[in-house]
Each structure stands twice: as structure tokens, then as C-alpha cells.
């Protein structure tokens, strides 16, 4: 099992890149008008990946904890911002809530994975910390954004039900419970789906990568199982955190539903 790693040369890369011309030809033949978009997307793929490759090589080379930490923080911030970007309803402080729930859950679970399960040394080892946090962030961001989207929509659509429950003597938590269940369910669904079909329909990129790099499939699979559960935990935790933060925003201590804090996106108010 020790075949040499096959490096990709620049000419080979160019050959692969030329495959995008197939899509371009399809677009031209069927008059889809996608040539420009395709060209830009292809260019972005190359530039973004080359850039991140350079950054990673630099980070690995200088091997300082504060540089790694800065990169991790930047990744987290971008993920948090992206998580608040969905949905038609927003509220003041939504961006902050998204960043808090994405970062708290991802960092907690990543720390657990890196220090307790994989046991990296030194503690900031970038070859592990950056890609693993990245994978966890990517999935947590999906969970949080779905959860936020769903909870704000449920609360707006079910305002009458929420207030009816309050009128019947429900506590704010009891009035919030039903929409919250829906939202947490929505946020957890992608990761449950992913765990259901992993290995059958999809071969995760990380596992494929490890196998391509010469790692024995047995080890690659162990890594993948660990990652899968880290992702599930972080994504579940992040979704719950986001929904709870919304609870704090839209219910007052006196059990009032502050529905007016939920605004349609784009409306200034």
C-alpha cells in the first residue's frame, strides 16, 4: 500500500482546466448565455484555491499559534456572517446571534475533536486545526442559517398561535416551544441526511483525499467517522444556540411576544 503519491504538474492542471470548455460549448450550442458566468466561476475557482493554497503553505511554514488562531477567527467570522444572510425576515442583532452561535458551537466541538479525540501536538497544528474547523464551520453554518430562517418565519407566520397560547396562560417558553421544535428540526435535517447516505451515495471529500494521498482506507474511514460526529454535534449545538438567542430577542421577561422586532428583509423601520 505504499505507491508513490502522484503529483499534478502544471500542464496536467491546464488539461483539466480546459474541460470547462465543454460547459462553454454546451452553453453556446444551446444558447444558454452562461459563457460569461462560467468563465468568471472557473476563474474564481482557480484564483481562490491558488490563494488559499499560498496562504496555507505560508501558515504551515511559519507555524505560529497566533497566525493559526487569526486564520481560524477569520474563517469563523465569515461563516457567521454567511449564516445570517438567508431568509426573508430579520431582526436587529441577527448577525451577532449568528456569529455567536456558529462560533461557540464550532469552536467547542472542534476543540473536543482536536484535543480529546485526535490529540494533536502542538495544540494549534495547522494541518489539522484549519481543515477540521473549516469542515465543521461549513456544516454548522448551514444548520444555523436554516434554524434562523425557520424560527423567524415560524414566529411571523404563527404569531396568532403564539399569542393565543400566551392568552391561555402559557409561559413565554411554552409559547415558543412549537416554533422552536420546527426550527431545530429544520436545522438538523441536512446533517442527519448526510449521515444517512454517507458511504452509500456520497464519498466525503476528506476521506477521498486521504485515500488519494496514500492513507489506508481503514484510517481514512476512522477520520471520516470522527468528523461526521463532530459536524453533527456542532451543527446541532449551533442550531439550538441560534434558536435560543432568538427566544431572548423576541420574548420579554413579562412574557410578551415582541413580534414587531421581526421585520421583513429590505424594509427599513
Amino acid at each position: 500500500m505504499n505507491a508513490p503519491y502522484l503529483a499534478i504538474s502544471w500542464p496536467s492542471l491546464l488539461l483539466a482546466a480546459s474541460l470547462v470548455l465543454i460547459n462553454g460549448a454546451v452553453s453556446l450550442a444551446l444558447r444558454l448565455g452562461l459563457e460569461k458566468k462560467l468563465a468568471i466561476a472557473a476563474l474564481r475557482t482557480v484564483v481562490q484555491l491558488l490563494l488559499i493554497g499560498m496562504i496555507l503553505e505560508w501558515v504551515f511554514a511559519i507555524d505560529r499559534w497566533y497566525v493559526v488562531l487569526a486564520i481560524l477567527a477569520l474563517m469563523t467570522l465569515i461563516a457567521g456572517r454567511a449564516a445570517a444572510g438567508r431568509g426573508s425576515i430579520r431582526y436587529r442583532g441577527m448577525g451577532l446571534d449568528a456569529i455567536v452561535s456558529v462560533s461557540a458551537s464550532s469552536w467547542l466541538v472542534t476543540a473536543l475533536g482536536l484535543f480529546a479525540v485526535i490529540r494533536i501536538d502542538p495544540w494549534y497544528r495547522p494541518q489539522y486545526a484549519i481543515p477540521i474547523l473549516g469542515m465543521i464551520l461549513g456544516n454548522t453554518l448551514t444548520g444555523v442559517s436554516l434554524g434562523l430562517e425557520r424560527i423567524t418565519e415560524e414566529l411571523s407566520a404563527r404569531r396568532a398561535q403564539v399569542e393565543t397560547l400566551l392568552s391561555l396562560g402559557a409561559t413565554r417558553w411554552e409559547a415558543f416551544r412549537l416554533p422552536a421544535q420546527q426550527a431545530v428540526r429544520a436545522g438538523m435535517m441536512p446533517v442527519i441526511n448526510a449521515m444517512t447516505v454517507v458511504g452509500l451515495v456520497s464519498l466525503p471529500g476528506m476521506m477521498t483525499g486521504q485515500v488519494l494521498a496514500g492513507q489506508a482506507p481503514g484510517q481514512a474511514i476512522r477520520y471520516q467517522i470522527v468528523i461526521m460526529f463532530l459536524i453533527a454535534a456542532a451543527s446541532g449545538l449551533g442550531t439550538v444556540a441560534a434558536v435560543l438567542l432568538v427566544y431572548r430577542r423576541v420574548f420579554s421577561r413579562a412574557h410578551c411576544f415582541l413580534f414587531w422586532r421581526l421585520e421583513e428583509r429590505g424594509k427599513t423601520g
Binding site: 397560547l165 391561555l168 396562560g169 402559557a170 409561559t171
Partner: peptide, 8 residues
């Protein structure tokens, strides 16, 4: 439904 609430 109301009987599922803490209050009742």
C-alpha cells in the same frame, strides 16, 4: 391543549 401548559 391548555391542560398541557404549566399553568393548568
Amino acid at each position: 391543549l391548555p391542560y398541557t401548559l404549566l399553568q393548568h
